[in-house]
């Protein structure tokens, strides 16, 4: 009996000790929509060089954005690091970000951060088409994604309809072409029996394995597959005309309004924009560095050479749930 009592009391204290440690000035809590595999090495580097403890909650960008919306200003997070501007925009719309210091905002080109200074882009990701270089050549591919609904592409274009970057692309298409045209395009892809995958990496894997011919992805998945196997028969195709399909979506970060560690949070974001971290994005994750002066990975066309549609990334967020609805309505979920 006594042992049991002691156990119970120890339990109560143990749990209290585990849970009751509020964020001290030496801890920054980050909600990361970027995967642990990609971002953890960078965070370790920061912890070592700054002495600050970074506690990271990993998840899907949209999930974490929704979590922050639910939490409001009581959110335990100080920094929200997201894969796409739409998730960041959702938090910005709810007025849950503080305005970033000017020196952070001005370290990247204006088009890659929020117009009201709520978040700043950290790395660039271009939407591309991955294609099987044995079965196809770049000349076979259309000039925008609209060409892919042509019946000749039946069963040949892989998409990841539940994936965050696909949904952000759909949101951009709604802004550019309107709701009706976007729904038509999605229905066209459905009518073409486009094979659906869980995520970008599985599409690229399918192309590399010769299971699929092409697919709509982000550019770095192809480079990652090529880094693993230089002989893989896959390449990126950048649409030559500006459209939602050639969108460049920055991943980005912002500071939450309820955080007690505003300065430490700003310091963490400054680190992400430092030459070392930008170099890491360029060489290790094959993304576009956004800070001028850092070169992208060798084979990539320069960022400015990619024709990009004229939209303000801050407008993507309000379209996100509509994008999900349209994808569902087209029967792609």
């Amino acid at each position: 009996m006594h042992r049991l009592t002691i156990l119970v009391i120890a339990f109560a204290f143990g749990v209290a000790a585990c849970s009751g440690s509020p964020e001290s000035s030496d801890t920054v809590t980050v909600y990361s929509g970027r995967s642990e595999e990609l971002i953890a090495p960078l965070i370790e580097q920061y912890e070592e060089q700054s002495g600050v403890d970074v506690s990271v909650r990993y998840g899907d960008s949209a999930e974490l954005a929704a979590t922050i919306l639910e939490e409001g200003d009581r959110s335990p997070a100080s920094v929200f690091l997201a894969q796409d501007p739409a998730s960041l925009g959702a938090v910005a719309l709810a007025n849950l970000f503080t305005e970033l210091p000017q020196e952070l905002l001005s370290s990247v080109p204006e088009r890659f951060s929020d117009r009201d200074g709520n978040w700043v882009g950290v790395s660039g990701r271009a939407r591309t088409v991955v294609y099987d270089t044995v079965a196809l050549s770049a000349n076979d591919l259309p000039t925008t994604e609209d060409g892919l609904v042509d019946p000749q592409w039946t069963g040949r274009v892989g998409i990841a309809p539940t994936n965050g970057s696909f949904l952000a692309f759909v949101a951009a298409k709604i802004l550019l072409d309107g709701e009706a045209a976007t729904l038509d395009w999605l229905k066209g892809m459905q009518a073409n029996e486009s094979p659906t995958y869980a995520k970008n990496s599985t599409i690229v894997g399918a192309v590399v394995d010769g299971q699929a011919e092409t697919g709509l992805v982000n550019h770095y998945y192809v480079l990652r597959a090529l880094a693993e196997d230089p002989d893989a028969a896959a390449a990126n195709y950048f649409f030559p005309e500006a459209s939602a399909g050639s969108l460049i979506m920055p991943s980005g970060a912002g500071i939450l309004i309820g955080s007690d560690a505003q300065d430490a949070a700003a310091d963490f974001i400054a680190f992400l924009l430092s030459p070392g971290a930008q170099e890491y994005f360029a060489q290790e994750t094959f993304e576009y560095p956004l800070v001028p002066g850092i070169e992208p990975f060798g084979v990539l066309p320069p960022l400015d050479a990619i024709p990009t549609p004229d939209i303000d990334l801050s407008d993507l967020a309000p379209m996100l749930d509509l994008a999900t609805d349209l994808v569902a309505e087209a029967g792609l979920l």
């Binding site: 998840g59 999930e63 929704a66 919306l69 869980a198 996100l320």
Partner: peptide, 20 residues
């Protein structure tokens, strides 16, 4: 197994949507 039953869709809606 990627078979959409209630539990899987509830989680997908929870994780993938801003509106909960």
């Amino acid at each position: 197994m990627r078979f959409d039953t209630f539990t899987r869709v509830i989680y997908a809606q929870y994780a993938g949507r801003l509106d909960r």
